[in-house]
Design a protein around this nucleic acid. Sequence first.
DNA 1: CACAGTGGTCAAGCTACTTGACCATACAGG
DNA 2: CCTGTATGGTCAAGTAGCTTGACCACTGTG
Lengths: 148, 148
Amino acid sequence: MHNSEAMALSAALLAAAGELTQRIHAGVVARGFEGLRPAHGFAFARLAPDGATVSELAGHLGVTKQAASQLVEELVRKGYVERRPHPVDARARLVVMTELGWACTRAAEEAAADAVRPWVRQLGGRQARALYEQLLVIAPNGPIRPTW
Amino acid sequence: MHNSEAMALSAALLAAAGELTQRIHAGVVARGFEGLRPAHGFAFARLAPDGATVSELAGHLGVTKQAASQLVEELVRKGYVERRPHPVDARARLVVMTELGWACTRAAEEAAADAVRPWVRQLGGRQARALYEQLLVIAPNGPIRPTW
DNA sequence: CACAGTGGTCAAGCTACTTGACCATACAGG
DNA sequence: CCTGTATGGTCAAGTAGCTTGACCACTGTG
């Protein structure tokens, strides 16, 4: 694969990621969840299983813990998450999603499905799954960096 | 494809794009081009063939023309591009790359090739090309949005 | 030749991030 | 059992890159 092709692949990857982000965000807004940014969705993805601390969130988002703390504060104010005392570490606070947060996550999943659907139609289900698996191979579970 | 899978695909796509951006940027810096951000590379990609106007650049980057103008001003100050009178429209100014700009672009292509190489090794050349072509299908030539 | 549309820049404001300082708690070593 | 260092979290202030708004130069159509 030549240098120029590598560059073209990068551009295509970035364009696809940007468009997808935009579509999901638009879908979430259309479902009535306002005042949120894509970065909040990435935070939800990390919080969803069992909650997380601010520091873990910061690592996941690729920002400082101060920035993550501000983001959490904003989500608390809007009712999507709440801070609870950490069960085993009295320094830490476990951030968990509220029912509203879960509802927003479900909306995001629906929006993601809507956004991906035309791709599946164009590629076919088999190739769409191949795309997914290829992406998993090359980016196992790295941090998601909302800002470049 | 279920909702949760669509979300996972999105996350994988975003993680891959973010990691790739970071690697290319690091490679460019390592080759001696400092004071640049990834967004500048996306600008170069649009300027490379025949130059472009500020408005075209703004459309490509998904920002206002004021922001694009500031970005161009910065690149001019650092010697990567220069503004020339537009050949057919006296209102417009054609932004073209200098020799330094071309050198930086070549460095970025090398860095992109370095970043993509491990993926090609893991996936195999055949699947890597398939990945590229799948991405072209789903994101033909949309704008690149550096910031979310 | 009037006038709406477009290309570009200047200026001011906003927002999400950063760095720096600080406190509370954890934990390992004397 | 202290003491020193590391870690989790927040407060405060500064910053970078974007936005909106205003404006001028030029285009092109009626």
